[in-house]
Design a protein around this nucleic acid. Structure first.
Lengths: 193, 193
DNA sequence: CTACTATGTCATCAGTTGATGACATCGCCC
DNA sequence: GGGCGATGTCATCAACTGATGACATAGTAG
């Protein structure tokens, strides 16, 4: 029997893929266990990479955490621009409800946001979410306190998705997604009237 | 100079006071740092008690955590019974907003609630919050999906208070409490109509 | 006063954590 | 194909964590 790749089909070296694997594993584990609860060893194992690479690529564990936020910020793009408020809240809800809590959603619910983390949140939430929503509200004739109302909607949706995901509110957790979405649209409507 | 209590006025031994001090210190630190982030040594130091007493009185760190939840559950009483929905949401908001995140609010926002923790949450939230709210909605003529709507309101308020407290949503964080309360009442109204 | 229990203090353990640096190996450029 | 930087592996460190049990002392019942 030749010493071919019988059991361990040795991956080709690919730092980009490795970084990506680490970020994705970190995203999942930070979500499941929180920042302190997710260990670099566990992240490395899930990513199929050596934990020491975290230090090499991201400096340290916190750097990796920041990277998960930035990664989401990148992929978010201009998803919500130009939509009316009903559509924005519907899509935001679906995104946060379907994909599980995203890193940003998780970070927004964290108790002790580090300054760098807060900065990432502000840049993502502010430009990608609050502004499109506020514009939509203004166009719907509700210019007054449009930014505050937008952030209230974002916070409310965050809380709803959070408690739905972790089972803290059992009826809400079991409810049909479309029914919840409908009620959220009602809430959004109450910010316009 | 007599060897009186000059610097260290040696506290009298009082296990009840010690337990209470530990629970309060734990409440504050779990809120600030999360469960993993708050160490038993830090809790002991803030409480002015030896960390070993945590093991004596609560079994272990998690027992202390459960105790903080039970403590809040005790003091909550029947605060919200018999009020109409507007009043319930107003008081709930003020409580969570004014006192900082309570242990229960914090636990509801946690990613990985332990079974015992979830049980405490359900008993407190279910009986003390959802039921009074649902009754109020039913009396206001909205019997349909009253429990779901109640939990949506609770989740929404949780998210709003959370993001207000940690600064994730800057406009909301800076906003006047009464203005936010007014908007929350609007949201509650949208669940009735 | 004596003896006993409740309460508090202290030193220490075994396990885990994030981080580091030496080393091995790959893949590419010339 | 020789050389060299990029990439990955491994062993190990110092710090910290939750927990434990031996010990000290206060308060009290008899």
């Amino acid at each position: 029997m030749k010493p071919t790749a019988s059991e361990a089909p040795r991956k080709p070296r690919d730092s980009i893929a490795t970084r990506k694997a680490l970020v994705e594993a970190a995203r999942a584990l930070f979500d499941e266990k929180g920042f302190s609860g997710a260990t670099v060893r566990a992240i490395g194992e899930r990513a199929g990479a050596d934990p020491a690479l975290i230090a090499r690529y991201f400096g340290n564990k916190e750097g990796l955490y920041i990277a998960t936020l930035a990664d989401e910020s990148d992929e978010a793009g201009a998803r919500y621009a130009g939509l009316d408020p009903d559509q924005v809240v519907s899509r935001l809800f679906e995104r946060w409800d379907e994909r599980g809590r995203t890193p940003v959603a998780r970070a927004m619910a964290s108790a002790e946001p580090d300054d760098q983390v807060l900065e990432q949140i502000h840049s993502l939430v502010g430009f990608r979410l609050r502004e499109p929503l506020a514009e939509g509200l203004a166009e719907a004739g509700t210019a007054e306190a449009a930014e505050l109302k937008s952030e209230i909607l974002i916070g409310a949706i965050l809380g709803i998705c959070l408690t739905r995901a972790n089972g803290a509110l059992p009826v809400l957790a079991e409810a049909d997604r479309e029914q919840v979405a409908e009620l959220i649209r009602k809430i959004a409507g109450s910010m316009i009237g």
